Simulated assay, not measured.
Amino acid sequence: MAKKEKVVENVNYLFNKYTGKEKLEGQIDHLQSHIVELEIDNKTLRTKFEKSAANEKKAVAAKQDAEEALNAAGFRISTLEHEIEKNKENSFDHLSFSHVDMLSIRRMQDYVSTLSSLRSPEETLLTLYVCNGSSVSGIFGNDPVEKYIDPDTLHLLEKIDSQNGFVLFHDRDSLVNEVIIPPLPVETSKWLQGTAFNTEQLLGLLSKELSICILLAHAGESFVAYSLDSRHLDSYELIRSNVKSKHGKGGFSQRRFERLRDEEIVHHADKVRESLGELINNLEFDFDYLVIGGDQNLANLIIKDIDVDIPLLFSPVDIRVEKHASEDVLRQVFLSRRYKL
């Protein structure tokens, strides 16, 4: 029996040796082990992928939440900025000049002399000359104007309407903060800061002796005059015409009345234009300015056809000469305005 088993064992050995079965079985075992390893790796990678996909979903959701929060914050910021600007406008609307005064040339000269005497231990006194049409920020160039003038003062400067420009005297500590509108146009825009105010250009305007022609236009009563030294009138004429007062009723009668009144105003303008033209053309010298006051629309109607090359100077004076002495006209024409900020 043992001999028989031995023979079977030898036969199996020879069979395995010549058929390669043993080698194939070894390869199969190796491949099966590799398959197991791959399955383990696959399971690991799948787990990582599932975690990555979950994290990606969370990241997308977090990104959306962050974008919504950012948009909400941006909207809130815009709303707050609008409210801030609105509050600024409302606060600026409450700003006004604490004092407005009209000063004659003599009083203005005394005032400027007082300003000239002020001194500061540091360079805190700012003088700003602004021509008509110039912007305050433009005068400072690349320097930010807020470095020298506070926002409230800047806002008040924007309220000033002057064809002559203006002069600002401003102390950094607000001990002095005033604007002067001179009777003559500011010639050069500039700013200076030091231990004293620079009043040279303003004093020059106040001390000028000018030859001027004056037109004070009012419907039915206009005043034409001239002065060779801007201190005394050398000649004047009061021109009167019959111009009806304004109609108080409505309807057809009012329209007819207003048409007739307009015709009378045109007739009055023709009379004044003739007198003014004769005055200008008959004199053998050129006027420095044609000063215009009163009703600006009527004045423009009067001068539109006068062919003269004289600088125009519009004055806020609006007096009727019959109620004032003729010499008082010059004093009114050369008044300066003072605004205390």
Rank of each mutant, 00 (worst) to 15 (best):
S207F: 03
L128P: 04
P185T: 05
H155N: 14
N142E: 15
L192P: 00
P144L: 07
P151E: 14
I139C: 07
L205Y: 01
L157V: 08
M108E: 10
Q109C: 06
Q193C: 12
G133T: 10
N177Y: 06
P183I: 02
S207C: 04
T127C: 02
I149E: 03
E158L: 12
F140T: 03
A219P: 00
V112M: 04
G204A: 05
E187L: 03
V186G: 02
L103N: 09
Q193T: 08
G138S: 15
F166S: 09
E123K: 13
H170V: 00
L128C: 09
W191Y: 15
V112Q: 02
E146S: 12
K190S: 05
L192R: 11
L103V: 14
D173F: 12
V176I: 15
D150W: 06
G133S: 13
L157D: 06
S113F: 08
P183F: 09
L115V: 08
G133R: 11
E158T: 13
L157P: 05
E123M: 04
T195C: 11
E123S: 11
F166Q: 07
S134V: 12
G220R: 06
S174V: 09
S116I: 03
L184R: 05
P151T: 11
N132M: 09
R107D: 15
S113P: 01
P183A: 14
V136P: 03
V176W: 08
D101N: 15
D143S: 14
S116E: 13
G204T: 00
T188H: 10
G165D: 04
L103E: 08
V179W: 05
K147E: 10
D152P: 00
G138L: 11
S120C: 14
I149G: 04
D173W: 05
F169N: 08
E146I: 11
V186W: 01
S211C: 09
D101R: 13
T153A: 10
P185E: 03
V145A: 07
E146G: 04
L184P: 02
A196N: 09
L192M: 13
S137D: 15
V112R: 01
F166K: 10
N198D: 15
K190N: 02
S162K: 06
N198R: 07
S120M: 12
P151G: 07
L202V: 01
E200I: 00
H170Q: 05
R172Y: 13
K159F: 02
F169P: 04
I180G: 01
T195S: 14
H170W: 08
